[in-house]
Design a protein around this nucleic acid. Sequence first.
DNA 1: CACGTAACGGTTGAG
DNA 2: TCCTCAACCGTTACG
Length: 355
Amino acid sequence: MEQTYGEVNQLGGVFVNGRPLPNAIRLRIVELAQLGIRPCDISRQLRVSHGCVSKILARYNETGSILPGAIGGSKPRVTTPNVVKNIREYKQGDPGIFAWEIRDRLLADGVCDKYNVPSVSSISRILRNKIGNLSQPNQYESSKQPPPQAALSYNHIYPYSYTNAMSPTGTKMGSSPGGPVTAAHVSISRGWPSAHTVSNILGIRAFMDPAAIAGTEGYAPKMEDWGSVNRTFPSAHTVNGIDKSAIEADIKYPQPSSTLSSYVPACAYSPSNQYGVYSGPAGSYVTPGHHWQSQSTSLSHPGSAMTMHGGDIHSPMAFKHPSRDGDRKPPSPLSKQQHEALNSVHGLPLPTSSS
DNA sequence: CACGTAACGGTTGAG
DNA sequence: TCCTCAACCGTTACG
């Protein structure tokens, strides 16, 4: 599949089947929801299916992350190097040990938990294939530090890691001439610290207009760059950035502790490359002459606690807090304020009742 | 009408 | 290198 063009949904929005929505849209959904705008209105305004809005909001409420989950790949194997190492040690310590005994010991020693402990047959296979002759020098990592996640449960490990030089979109981005693309990715994410609010994040030119960064030609509206946001979290782990330090030590695209970093806490991230799709022929998200940043830069949230100036909101989790629940579910007719919010977001009239 | 969700067809990427 | 398969995606349709 070379260039993937988006499809158009019933609302006239562009999407790519199988691929996540751009983070900008995801952010916008969350932001509008925080403004008290109803999901159905968000759906219509952003032209994203209500199912998707529902899903994204549900995920956000649950995890605090706007990011899509990690797509593709396989579960980490249970037979991690660490496990193999331990099995070997057990075997060395007691050559007559049974596989089931090894299994018990793995559990007892906390090497594995009940969810990721290898089966007896797996252990047998490990003994046979990987350990076999104990006198053999081990092709595994005798001294090498096993992945720290080795004993973690699956949910916590999705160790995506990309090198700086490598763009997950690399192959596809080949269509984009020149190398500045990768640099753009880096610079974008590095540029985050200057954007402290969702609004700014949404609005900053750097984010919305890759061309502004990459300085490349008509590449501008392509959404590939959104991937850079996703990619900032190579190490997926628990919610709300609990293990942030661990990540930050590791990540290739450090996510500054800005607002967005909490919007996109280290949830399993998707190295998504939303290649050019959303700017596709139907490109309703980023239409020529209607770049979001033009509106978003001035996106403000009139007279409410949601007024967001750069740096105002350091803890987007405040957004997440349901303390504003009272503000939610406004009366069905949107308030003027909400209309303004919507309009400022998309620059389109709010098609509340029409298709 | 609003919303939650299952089904669906799709992509992705580790093994 | 190619294949498999299980993860995720957003849309659609239904209740």
